[in-house]
Design a protein around this nucleic acid. Structure first.
Lengths: 206, 206
DNA sequence: GTCTATAGAGGGATAGAC
DNA sequence: GTCTATCCCTCTATAGAC
């Protein structure tokens, strides 16, 4: 037991600082456009210092993505076993949270698009992520359907996929021009996919 | 008149080859991830040769984007003054065309996301582009509304923006995993935003 | 754990010959 | 119009001192 507990937590704090800086860099310039030297400037450590804590640039990116997911999970509480209506209101909370933290939107927007190339280090991460997040949304729409809230000509899984897609696409537009209400566009999605009973239950009447 | 017509068209053909190669490179790796040397390999010309025809890497990207827009316009014929129902069927044709030409999807997916950074050479291009394309879609939904085909609780402009967003978002998912029917997801959008009369008129009943 | 030094590759762009 | 040669920069990653 040569190493007291203090050392480990100091290291963790250092890693956390690096992750925060890397988050900023990858958010604004993407993985390919961002560099370790930009990260090292922000965190006031050498590039070699960064690579002492993270094997290489790619694993730093993955760590940033996992780090962000961890932080988001502390805020949103969206799960597959929550009720359909709770999902809807939690979804709006998530959008509002993201609007007030644009860096998160930038990160996922740029890196997910880059990652469509199979050689990109985050390719597998995003393949897994979309399966997971669509499944969570699907669970909600299945329940909304069972409650008689979903339009009868729509399939829950298709609607779930569409919600995620709409959200991603709106974020690109929003990053280019923020002169409009992104939250309201999400509400319109539910106004179009829920029936009258569902719209009333979700409090989305005009 | 020292220069006969033949020279000019040879130059144009050369530029066209470069644009085709640059399209491939920027499609798969984005602007920041792609390089002039990759383009030069494909087109079998030196990097200096490329920069004789295009001022720099950024202007090559813009030229590629304009080049692709020109080619797409030859195929799709979507305009602001076509009828609402014609827009719907043309939109499906456009999606089918893109599905069979994945490079187009890759290009816009990656480069539009990169371009959300204000320093990116295509930033203004995509700001203008979204205004234009949403306006064309809006013109169609305004007409569909006038015909009594749009759901009464939806605003045409919001629906137009949502269609573009949905389309962009679906493309990211599709590039990561093509095991599903992207055309059908677009049809579902109209099943959710048109009323029964509209769905029947657009031939979207199940 | 952090640094300096450096390897080694690759990037964009320009000058000038042909 | 195309090339070679070159400049200068930036990048990731490693080695080894402290």
């Amino acid at each position: 037991m040569a190493r007291p507990k203090g050392d480990a937590s100091v290291t963790e704090a250092r890693k956390s600082l690096i992750l925060t800086a890397a988050f900023e860099v990858f958010s604004s310039r993407g993985f390919r456009g961002g560099s370790l030297s930009q990260v090292s400037e922000l965190v006031e450590i050498s590039e070699a210092g960064i690579l002492h804590h993270f094997k290489n640039k790619g694993s730093l990116l993955i760590s940033v993505l996992e780090y962000r997911d961890r932080l988001s999970r502390e805020v949103t509480h969206i799960t597959a076993d929550m009720s359909g209506l709770d999902f809807v209101s939690s979804w709006f909370e998530l959008i509002e949270f993201n609007i007030s933290h644009p860096g998160i939107i930038e990160l996922y927007c740029i890196v997910s698009a880059e990652s469509t190339n199979p050689e990109h280090p985050a390719n597998q991460f995003f393949r897994d992520r979309y399966v997971e997040v669509i499944e969570v949304a699907n669970a909600a729409f299945v329940k909304l359907e069972a409650q008689g809230y979903l339009r009868s000509n729509l399939d829950p899984f298709d609607v779930a996929r569409a919600l995620i897609a709409l959200s991603d696409g709106l974020q690109v537009q929003w990053l280019l021009n923020r002169d409009w209400d992104m939250l309201n566009e999400h509400k319109n999605f539910f106004r179009a996919t829920l029936n009258e009973a569902g719209i009333a239950a979700a409090n989305l009447s005009n």
